Simulated scan of single mutants.
Amino acid sequence: MERPDWAPKDVDIEKASAARLYDYFLGGSYNFEVDRALGRQIEKAAPGVPEFAFLNRAYLRRAVRFMLSRGVDQFLDLGSGIPTAGNVHEIAQNTNPDARVVYVDNEPVAVAHADLLLEDNPNAVAIEADLQDYATVLGHEKTRGLLDFSRPIGLLAVAVLHFLPADVDPYAVLAEYHRALPAGSYFALSHLTHDVGSDQVDQIIRLYAQSQNPIIARGRDDIAAMFTGFDLVEPGIVFTPLWHPESPEDVGEHPDRSGAFVGVGRKR
Rank of each mutant, 00 (worst) to 15 (best):
E107I: 04
L26Q: 13
E234K: 15
V262C: 13
A46C: 12
P245F: 09
R218A: 13
P108K: 12
V101H: 01
D148C: 06
H89M: 08
A126P: 03
R61Q: 14
A129F: 01
S258I: 08
L161H: 00
L232Y: 04
Y59P: 10
V158F: 00
I204Y: 11
L68C: 11
E249M: 14
E51I: 05
T240C: 08
V11A: 10
G259N: 07
T95Y: 12
H178P: 07
R257Q: 07
A37D: 11
E249S: 15
H244A: 15
R144V: 07
P108T: 03
A99F: 11
R70T: 09
A19P: 00
I82C: 08
W6Q: 08
T136M: 14
V111A: 05
D133A: 14
P165Y: 07
V102C: 09
R36Y: 02
P214N: 02
T193C: 15
L76H: 03
D130S: 15
A217G: 11
Q41L: 14
V158M: 06
A19R: 00
I223R: 10
D98T: 12
E14G: 14
N94I: 00
T84W: 07
D195S: 10
I204R: 06
S247L: 12
V233R: 03
H89Y: 10
S185A: 08
P235H: 09
T95M: 09
A124F: 10
Q41H: 13
V201R: 13
S211I: 04
G28S: 12
M1Q: 12
E234S: 14
I204C: 05
D73G: 14
E51A: 09
Y103L: 13
V11C: 01
N31M: 02
A209C: 08
Q203D: 10
E246P: 15
R266M: 15
T143K: 07
D250A: 15
E90L: 14
Y24E: 00
A224I: 01
I237F: 08
T84N: 14
A85I: 06
L116H: 09
T228M: 02
F75R: 03
M1I: 12
V264P: 06
P50C: 07
G197C: 11
H191N: 08
H254Y: 05
I91H: 08
L174V: 00
D202I: 10
Y30S: 13
P47K: 04
R40T: 04
R36T: 06
E43N: 12
A124V: 03
E51T: 08
Y177A: 01
P8M: 00
I215H: 02
A209E: 10
D221A: 15
D105Q: 04
Y59E: 05
V158E: 01
P47D: 00
G39D: 03
I215Q: 01
G139N: 02
R65D: 09
P245V: 04
L147I: 01
Y30V: 07
H89K: 12
E43I: 12
A135M: 11
F230S: 01
K267Y: 12
D10A: 11
D23E: 09
A7P: 02
Y208D: 05
G263Y: 00
R100F: 11
F149A: 08
A112V: 01
P248V: 11
A260P: 08
Q203P: 07
A92S: 03
P241K: 06
